[in-house]
Simulated assay, not measured.
Amino acid sequence: MSPINLAIVGVGKIARDQHLPSIASNPDFRLVAAASRHGGVEGIPHYTTIEAMLEAMPSIDAVSLCMPPQFRYDAARAAISANKHVFLEKPPGATLSEVVDLETLATSKGSSLFASWHSRYAAAVEAARSFLASVEIQSVHIVWKEDVRHWHPNQEWIWQAGGLGVFDPGINALSILTHILPSAAFLRSAKLEFPENRQAPIAADLHFTDAANINIRAEFDWRQTGEQTWDIKANTSGGEMALARGGSALSIDGAAIFVSSQEEYPALYRRFADLIAKGESDVDLAPLRHVADAFLLGERIVVEPFYDRA
């Protein structure tokens, strides 16, 4: 089969660091165009809007949308309306309602819509899921702490309403949690810390239970310097499971479990190609629902101002 003609929209840090290398290494795709207000990709046509790109290049089969979530709905709707397949960087949108609308539109058009959760494709996640399905879970503790100045330097959109703040990385932990737990969890309480000069939280402390009343706690913080922490631990009848380094390492009672060397974004693009080939979509909103619940139930705590440079 001929490669899928793919365009990328939003040529920022995540596109350059992850999407472009993954596309280049996947023979199922041919990168043919880019649309971005500020940057292009060498060697292919560049447009400042997705509308101009779609009009000028009707041969495009699919688009990857890598712009901030506040702007993703209009771009996705334009692409699906033009009968293109759409890859949504996480989170898939700024609200649940707009993503549901996109899924409905994609179904009506016969387009594949992929709400990607890259952390679910980390090397040890499937092994952790299999383990938890075989034991009785007693409690779960997530610690997801990193340095926003390192990962999102001078990116003001993440601090604006709809930018999610610390839930931008925290939703990665929730995407793993909702994938590996055998049953659904429900948020019971939350504390969200908002810098007094920002519209999005810098830290969150979330408490969940499931139908069996298992205690699940998630701690997110964007102020951690030095070594970064992306860990999920579960006390179980089969020992303590530790899913570490963002889902790339797994141990049971301290003993390392062998996992694959799978890389997240190349796996995402293999999944996208498979969805297109099968005429299917993959739009799981569970992680975003948990974030929405946190904003609904969360106690708002105002903390000291945050500036990009300390």
Rank of each mutant, 00 (worst) to 15 (best):
H141G: 06
D101I: 00
V166N: 00
A310D: 10
K109E: 12
I14F: 12
Y73M: 10
R37N: 07
A62R: 09
I137A: 09
S260H: 07
L164C: 03
T209V: 13
E136N: 07
G170R: 01
Q70E: 14
D293K: 05
L243M: 11
H19Q: 13
S112A: 15
P21H: 03
Q155A: 12
R309W: 15
G170D: 03
Q224H: 07
A62K: 11
R270F: 08
Q70K: 09
H207E: 12
G39A: 15
H19N: 09
D74Y: 05
A24S: 13
S111H: 05
I202C: 11
G40M: 12
T48G: 01
A56M: 06
W230E: 06
M241F: 07
A212H: 14
L181K: 00
I171C: 02
V32N: 05
F258H: 10
S281C: 04
E227N: 07
E240F: 02
D101Y: 01
I137K: 09
A190V: 06
L132S: 05
H207C: 05
G254K: 07
V41I: 15
S237D: 14
F186H: 15
H290I: 00
W157P: 01
A15L: 12
A203R: 03
R188C: 11
V86G: 02
R30H: 10
R223Y: 06
F131S: 03
V99Y: 06
L181S: 01
L113T: 11
R149A: 14
S97I: 12
S116M: 13
I252Q: 09
L20Y: 02
Y269D: 04
K145V: 00
P266Y: 01
F295G: 00
E227P: 00
R198E: 14
V259H: 08
G12K: 07
P45D: 11
R77I: 10
R149Q: 15
